[in-house]
Design a protein around this nucleic acid. Sequence first.
DNA 1: ATGCAAATTCCATATAATGAGACTTCGTAG
DNA 2: CTACGAAGTCTCATTATATGGAATTTGCAT
Lengths: 261, 261
Amino acid sequence: MNHALKDGTVGKALLMLDIIADAEQSLRFNNILALSPFPKATTYRLLQTMTSQAMLSYDAESQKYSLGMRLVRLAHHAWKQASLGPIASPYLNQLASEVGETVHLAQIENGQVLFIDKRHTSQRFETLAQVGRIAPAHCTGVGKVMLAYMQPERQDYALQRQTYIKFTNTTITNKEALLDELITIKREGVAYDKEEHENGIISIAAPILTSSGQVMGAISIATSTSRHTVEDLTQYRGVLDTITKAVSTEAELYLHPTSGS
Amino acid sequence: MNHALKDGTVGKALLMLDIIADAEQSLRFNNILALSPFPKATTYRLLQTMTSQAMLSYDAESQKYSLGMRLVRLAHHAWKQASLGPIASPYLNQLASEVGETVHLAQIENGQVLFIDKRHTSQRFETLAQVGRIAPAHCTGVGKVMLAYMQPERQDYALQRQTYIKFTNTTITNKEALLDELITIKREGVAYDKEEHENGIISIAAPILTSSGQVMGAISIATSTSRHTVEDLTQYRGVLDTITKAVSTEAELYLHPTSGS
DNA sequence: ATGCAAATTCCATATAATGAGACTTCGTAG
DNA sequence: CTACGAAGTCTCATTATATGGAATTTGCAT
């Protein structure tokens, strides 16, 4: 099922990280063993290796494994060198203060939405508590808009990986309906989340595209139904468009700098 | 030199991540090969594996490898389940608004300071741009205070790993001087950074300890010499002490919950 | 003390990693 | 247009490493 099996020992070791991450808490050896497709001794050795590598940390007192701080260090570099984060950051500041609502920057990872950054006017924020969070693509504004603009093969792959879990009454729960929606989105240029993931939460999202039309990410403006209707969100189309274009342009410049000493 | 050699293929594969992280930019195969202790084919295969695992991402156009977004996703979970971050977060909010200065939460990783969270009153913040950053321990308030409270063996190990690089005129540049300083710090209960890492930047830091006296992390209040003198910082000893004790207590509760259903 | 489950270690075997070198690709200059 | 060189990719016999069933140890609960 998992593609860990393709990458030998390394894949197996990394699968241990996913097992512990997905559990959302630290686990004892037995818990991990139960979730591991490998025999006891193998699982044990993989955990030893990852612990020795600081990819996991082991608390001797509680005999529990949790994810290691080396991941936090590496993620910092990943964020700075491979995500849209550093480029989009000033634009998110501008957007957040302009619209006075929560704004998100997301990318797609393996068919899922990965939040890269977030701004919320006048709120205490918890950095990594927000960044790195994942969400399904089929029921979020950023997810749907990124799906809509994907190349056919990537889109197929991503659509295959959706769970189509019904979170609310408006959640799109099958591939056919989602494909219809994606056509509309591509025509409109923006996607709306009409309380599809969480009751009371709506958003408008626009894609960040390369000049060749590849999806790099998406930016959304989110609010609650107590303050706005979905129709209200339409007013943000202009500013969203401006901002995503600006990020896109700057990203292109950054990736393909004009020659010079 | 590196302990990657101890952990077989997995260690080698993870070393690729460090190589790319340390470069602070995406690299072509040849660049990586030059930094890799392994032969060409081996290095190539390790990169393939890590790319297939989304620990690295490869841009076909520029033929460059950079760190993958899976790291960001995993780090989010690591932060939530294994760091002091979630526990300390509300206290950092409180502290930052109380003192009106930048506050940091740090832990020690492999002898280095790892920043877990940060608050800065009225500033735009960049989440992972701050979190996950590392700094040397010998020249920072949080670093020194954590060294001071370490158990002898861990302290030895950490002191061994310091570079003792001279950043400014006040940087402590050898183990003996640092040991002296650590004695003073342990007597005082707080450490000061007297422009030892960066000119114009000073801080006061206090440790977060377990009930058994183990160092879990540290919190600092940082400011600039243009606004405060080191002596001014002394006024924050009380509030720092209160906050670190509160975090410590809550962390203990969290780690050793009283029995219940 | 005793029993039981969880955690750890052992070691012959199977399997996967290795790396020298061959090959392909691509950009550049003649 | 072709030749060249540098960068990147692939092959395969050899070697080293990972594997996992089973035995052992640990530690907690009775």
